[in-house]
Lab assay of single mutants.
Amino acid sequence: MKTQEELTEIVRDHFSDMGEIATLYVQVYESSLESLVGGVIFEDGRHYTFVYENEDLVYE
């Protein structure tokens, strides 16, 4: 089982391919040991929310 830090790094690596990240945040109250819920804001102003669970990243 991966730690929350490892899950965060996986998500950061994925989004870094889309541009320069200004902020990546995790909603700790919605996340667990198996899933990571949060959002990412890019330097150009784009903002996505995401759920990473079971090695699957869903964002909008």
Results as ranks from 00 to 15, higher is better:
Met1Thr: 14
Met1Lys: 15
Met1Leu: 11
Met1Tyr: 11
Lys2Asn: 05
Lys2Thr: 08
Thr3Phe: 04
Thr3Asn: 13
Gln4Ile: 08
Gln4Val: 10
Gln4Pro: 11
Gln4Met: 13
Gln4Gly: 05
Glu5Cys: 07
Glu5Met: 06
Glu5Gly: 07
Glu5Trp: 12
Glu5Ser: 07
Glu5Gln: 09
Glu5Asp: 08
Glu5Tyr: 10
Glu6Ser: 05
Glu6Gln: 08
Glu6Ala: 07
Glu6Thr: 08
Glu6Asp: 05
Glu6Arg: 07
Glu6Phe: 12
Leu7Met: 11
Leu7Ala: 04
Leu7Lys: 03
Leu7Pro: 01
Thr8Asn: 05
Thr8Gly: 05
Thr8Arg: 11
Glu9Ser: 13
Glu9Gly: 11
Glu9Ala: 14
Glu9Leu: 14
Glu9Phe: 12
Glu9Cys: 12
Glu9Pro: 02
Ile10Ala: 12
Ile10Val: 12
Ile10Met: 09
Ile10Leu: 14
Ile10Arg: 11
Ile10Asp: 06
Val11Thr: 03
Val11Met: 05
Val11His: 01
Val11Lys: 00
Val11Asp: 01
Val11Gly: 01
Val11Ala: 05
Val11Tyr: 01
Arg12Phe: 13
Arg12Lys: 15
Arg12Ala: 09
Arg12Ile: 09
Arg12Asp: 02
Arg12Asn: 05
Arg12Gln: 06
Arg12Thr: 06
Arg12Leu: 09
Asp13Val: 15
Asp13Lys: 14
Asp13Ala: 14
Asp13Ile: 12
Asp13Gln: 11
Asp13Met: 13
His14Asn: 10
His14Val: 12
His14Gly: 05
His14Thr: 10
His14Pro: 02
His14Trp: 14
His14Cys: 06
Phe15Thr: 01
Phe15Asn: 01
Phe15Ser: 01
Phe15Lys: 01
Ser16Val: 11
Ser16Pro: 02
Ser16Cys: 06
Ser16Asn: 12
Ser16Phe: 06
Ser16Ile: 10
Asp17Met: 15
Asp17Pro: 10
Asp17His: 13
Asp17Arg: 15
Met18Phe: 14
Met18Pro: 01
Met18Tyr: 11
Gly19Pro: 02
Gly19Thr: 02
Gly19Trp: 03
Gly19Asp: 02
Gly19Glu: 01
Gly19Val: 02
Glu20Ala: 12
Glu20Ile: 14
Glu20Asn: 13
Ile21Asp: 01
Ile21Arg: 01
Ile21Leu: 07
Ala22Ile: 08
Ala22Leu: 10
Ala22Lys: 15
Thr23Asp: 08
Thr23Phe: 07
Thr23Trp: 06
Thr23Ser: 12
Leu24Gly: 00
Leu24Tyr: 04
Leu24Asp: 01
Leu24Cys: 03
Tyr25Gln: 04
Tyr25Asn: 04
Tyr25Thr: 06
Tyr25Met: 04
Tyr25Val: 05
Val26Gln: 03
Val26Phe: 06
Val26Ser: 04
Gln27Phe: 09
Gln27Glu: 11
Val28Phe: 07
Val28Glu: 15
Val28Leu: 14
Val28Met: 15
Tyr29Met: 06
Tyr29Cys: 07
Tyr29Gly: 07
Tyr29Glu: 07
Tyr29Ala: 06
Tyr29Ser: 10
Tyr29Asp: 07
Tyr29Asn: 09
Glu30Pro: 05
Glu30Phe: 04
Glu30His: 12
Ser31Asn: 12
Ser31Trp: 08
Ser31Gly: 11
Ser31Arg: 04
Ser31Tyr: 08
Ser32Asn: 13
Ser32Thr: 12
Ser32His: 11
Ser32Gln: 10
Ser32Phe: 09
Ser32Met: 13
Leu33Cys: 07
Leu33Glu: 09
Leu33Arg: 12
Leu33Tyr: 07
Leu33Ile: 08
Glu34Lys: 10
Glu34Pro: 12
Glu34Ala: 15
Ser35Cys: 06
Ser35Lys: 13
Ser35His: 11
Ser35Ala: 08
Ser35Asn: 07
Ser35Val: 08
Ser35Thr: 13
Leu36Cys: 04
Leu36Tyr: 04
Val37Met: 15
Val37Pro: 01
Val37Ala: 07
Val37Ile: 09
Val37Gln: 08
Val37Glu: 08
Gly38Arg: 00
Gly38Phe: 03
Gly38Asp: 00
Gly38Thr: 01
Gly39Ala: 09
Gly39Ile: 06
Gly39Tyr: 07
Gly39Leu: 11
Gly39Thr: 10
Val40Leu: 05
Val40Asp: 00
Val40Cys: 05
Val40Ile: 09
Val40Pro: 00
Val40Phe: 02
Ile41Asp: 03
Ile41Arg: 07
Ile41Thr: 08
Ile41Gln: 05
Ile41Tyr: 12
Phe42Ser: 00
Phe42Gly: 00
Phe42Glu: 00
Phe42Met: 11
Phe42Ile: 02
Phe42Thr: 02
Phe42Pro: 00
Glu43Val: 14
Glu43Thr: 11
Glu43Gly: 15
Glu43Cys: 10
Glu43Ser: 11
Glu43Asn: 15
Asp44Pro: 01
Asp44Ala: 02
Gly45Tyr: 03
Gly45Met: 04
Arg46Met: 09
Arg46Lys: 13
Arg46Val: 06
Arg46Gly: 05
Arg46Gln: 08
His47Tyr: 12
His47Gly: 05
His47Ser: 11
His47Arg: 12
His47Val: 08
His47Ile: 14
His47Trp: 12
Tyr48Lys: 02
Tyr48Met: 07
Tyr48Gly: 02
Tyr48Arg: 00
Tyr48Asp: 01
Tyr48Thr: 02
Tyr48Ala: 03
Thr49Trp: 10
Thr49Pro: 03
Phe50Leu: 01
Phe50Gln: 00
Phe50Tyr: 13
Phe50Gly: 00
Phe50Pro: 00
Val51Leu: 11
Val51Asn: 07
Val51Gly: 03
Val51Ala: 09
Tyr52Val: 05
Tyr52Thr: 02
Tyr52Glu: 00
Tyr52Pro: 00
Glu53Trp: 09
Glu53Gln: 08
Glu53His: 09
Asn54Val: 05
Asn54Ile: 04
Asn54Tyr: 12
Asn54Gln: 14
Glu55Met: 11
Glu55Ile: 05
Glu55Phe: 12
Glu55Ser: 14
Asp56Met: 14
Asp56Asn: 13
Asp56His: 13
Asp56Ala: 09
Asp56Ile: 12
Leu57Lys: 02
Leu57Arg: 01
Leu57Phe: 09
Leu57Met: 08
Leu57Cys: 04
Leu57Ala: 03
Val58Arg: 15
Val58His: 13
Val58Met: 11
Tyr59Lys: 05
Tyr59Ser: 05
Tyr59Asn: 02
Glu60His: 15
Glu60Gly: 11
Glu60Phe: 08
Glu60Pro: 03
Glu60Ile: 15
Glu60Arg: 14
Glu60Tyr: 15
Glu60Lys: 15
